[in-house]
């Protein structure tokens, strides 16, 4: 099991790096989908089966489709002729911090333990409809806000 966890973490790191540094938006979106897919596998291995299904279907699938559609609509997939300055240092610093934290965790024998709804025997129905009901309601309103954003940016006229 540990091998699978390390493979997933390594894949997330590699695809995350590709996603941030890619010059092509489509490639960046696909790399991001790969990060989500690896994260989904990691969640499954760790026992969070329902979360893994959501991660793969929504983050890796649906969100990628929306990204690629938006990039295609805005012609953002075409390469810019002008050379761009890119901050390569930031992702490297962040990865270094993440690596340092991982090494510190291994050296101190740090374990997360098992907590709350994900780690407990609470059923999905119970978590979804009772324990996290407020969050579900919030997510519904967030979707409503997203729909309004699409109307504002794609339907309404530009000039005041």
């Amino acid at each position: 099991m540990n091998v699978a966890i390390y493979i997933c973490l390594g894949a997330m790191l590699a695809f995350g790096f590709l996603s941030v540094l890619s010059r092509n938006l489509i490639n960046a979106a696909i790399s991001l989908a790969a990060v989500s897919a690896a994260c989904g596998v990691l969640m499954y291995v760790l026992g969070a089966h329902t979360a893994a299904i959501f991660e793969v279907s929504v983050c890796s699938g649906l969100v990628t489709v929306i990204f690629i559609s938006a990039v295609s609509l805005s012609n953002g997939d075409k390469q810019s002729s002008a050379p761009e300055k890119r901050a390569h240092l930031l992702p490297i610093i962040l990865i270094a911090i993440g690596g340092a934290l991982m090494i510190a965790a291994v050296l101190t024998g740090f374990t997360l333990g098992s907590h709350g709804p994900v780690g407990s025997a609470a059923s999905f129905d119970n978590v979804f409809w009772e324990t996290r009901q407020a969050d579900i309601f919030g997510q519904m309103i967030a979707i409503l806000a997203g729909a309004s954003a699409i109307v504002v940016f794609f339907k309404e006229s530009e000039k005041k």
Partner: peptide, 25 residues
């Protein structure tokens, strides 16, 4: 709950981003 607080904070934030940019200038 602190996570629910974050969820609703994002709702207010999302509406704010769109409302600031709604004239698209």
């Amino acid at each position: 709950d602190l996570f629910s607080l974050y969820v609703f904070m994002e709702v207010a934030g999302l509406a704010s981003f769109v409302m600031i940019g709604m004239y698209k200038s």
